[in-house]
Design a binder for these strands. Structure first.
Lengths: 199, 199
DNA sequence: ACCTGAACACCGTTCAAGT
DNA sequence: ACCTGAACACCGTTCAAGT
């Protein structure tokens, strides 16, 4: 009756595991994430996930990798919709990043956490690097417009990356005084613009 | 034979648990941290820790709180040993913070992680705030010397805090391109100075 | 190929009972 | 006050066996 024959029980257990895992991560935090419960939720045996992820950490790595891919898309999209000036493009990028961070707090925590397999860690570094290149591109563009001071793009970009990442992290972990959320983003953007401005 | 009588079995189990927990955190990561193993290491029953920490999370919270206290001391010490100019003081603080971060990577991860009890979370926010006030003080001092632009200290300080925190986080999670560690710190300091400079 | 079911060695937490 | 020992309900991981 089905033209696309179901696979053994589930169809696409791997994707279903990732989707469900991210839901529980978002709703109940990383501590509540258990392979057995995931399997229960999806109606498969507790041993089934091991066909798709050798390990719990392997699933977490896949989750993080997927997060970096989506982050990259969001950042890229923010640049396409933005104006041409460096200030406008920076503004759009910062808002896109902080928006992703606050909407996916637990996932972001996972993406930048330390406990990755050395093997998967390389794939993650590459993924993280790829979106960081959006910053490099932004800086380079700003330089060619004369709106950003000269210097190797990577070196100008690192402090910008750090500021962005740090602000998102502080906002997400609730370490910012409540009244700062008001002007916090604007202040960060203005500060970054000053830091990048030519002499 | 001992003037200071031992308590029941251990003497000061609470402190011993914290010490040992931080060791395993440092050496084997947060995933390897188990109350039962801690108890085994210290030669007490697996139920003994519950007399001192109601929960595993309670122990983690205590670990984080202790981390913030030590961080505060280190930051304060960096300011005492530093020169008078804003640039010198900022330099000292950044190096102290990044030094602490790289020397206590897993602990820092824990300190800023999201999964704290709402109750303990408040105590942690206070502790985090206290060291953040060192930044506020630094900014205020810089302003009175005419080396930092005017404006509410909290608003000038937030981007500085974010940059510092973000750079430490990136360095710790290995997300910085290897060649940046060379000049990374210097670039971050220079960038921050530009961002803070008066017009 | 993909999944099951049982088994193993671990967890965290609780609670009567001991000293 | 502080700790033990047993018990409970969970884990992650592995592996023969099923379809």
């Amino acid at each position: 009756m089905q033209t696309r024959p179901r696979r053994y029980h589930h169809g696409d257990l791997r994707a279903a595991l990732l989707t469900r895992a991210e839901e529980t991560l978002r709703e109940k935090g990383p501590a509540a994430l258990s392979l057995r419960e995931l399997a229960r939720d999806l109606g498969v045996s507790h041993a089934a996930p091991s066909r798709h992820f050798k390990d719990k950490q392997d699933l977490l790595d896949a989750l993080a990798l997927n997060g970096f891919e989506r982050l990259g898309e969001i950042i890229a999209a923010s640049q396409e919709g933005a104006g041409e000036s460096f200030a406008e493009r920076l503004d759009a990028m910062v808002r896109a990043y902080v928006g992703f961070a606050t909407a996916n707090a637990a996932l972001l925590d996972l993406m930048y956490s330390i406990k990755h397999d050395p093997e998967a860690s390389e794939a993650l570094s590459v993924a993280a690097q790829r979106w960081a290149e959006e910053i490099v591109e932004l800086i380079g563009d700003g330089q060619s417009r004369g709106e950003v001071r000269e210097g190797p793009v990577e070196r100008v970009g690192v402090p910008v990356f750090a500021t962005l990442h740090g602000y998102a992290g502080l906002a997400v972990s609730g370490m910012l005084p409540p009244e700062t959320t008001e002007h916090g983003l604007d202040d960060v953007i203005a500060h970054t613009l000053r830091g990048c401005a030519p002499d």
